[in-house]
């Protein structure tokens, strides 16, 4: 699975990069790499079986009073 993931990302780079380099769109290149890295960083641990904390925890913590009010009590 990790190998497959790396392959997929390599494929995406292979499809994306040449066009950008040819057009010398370096800003775009940076943005693309940023998102690809983010995607890779988020997916690799999952594929390897680590449990990442959900980003929702922060939101849940902040909105706890309201969500407690909203929780159905039966």
């Amino acid at each position: 699975m990790p190998v497959l993931l790396v392959l997929v990302f390599l494929l995406i780079i292979f499809l994306e990069a040449p066009g950008l380099i040819k057009k010398k769109w370096w800003r775009e290149m940076i943005a693309v790499s940023f998102f690809l890295l983010l995607g890779f960083a988020l997916s690799l641990p999952q594929v390897l079986g680590f449990e990442l904390p959900s980003p929702n925890i922060v939101i849940e913590a902040i909105f706890k009073p309201i969500s407690d009010w909203l929780r159905v009590t039966t």
């Binding site: 943005a31 988020l42 997916s43 999952q46």
Partner: peptide, 30 residues
């Protein structure tokens, strides 16, 4: 993202953002 970063086109960003979306959506809820 393209407008914020003042890029010339948003299309190159689509697939990379897709990878973020996929990994984020599996991550969000157990």
């Amino acid at each position: 993202s393209a407008q914020l970063l003042k890029l010339k086109d948003y299309r190159p960003l689509v697939v990379p953002i897709g990878t973020v979306l996929v990994s984020l959506s599996t991550l969000l809820h157990p």
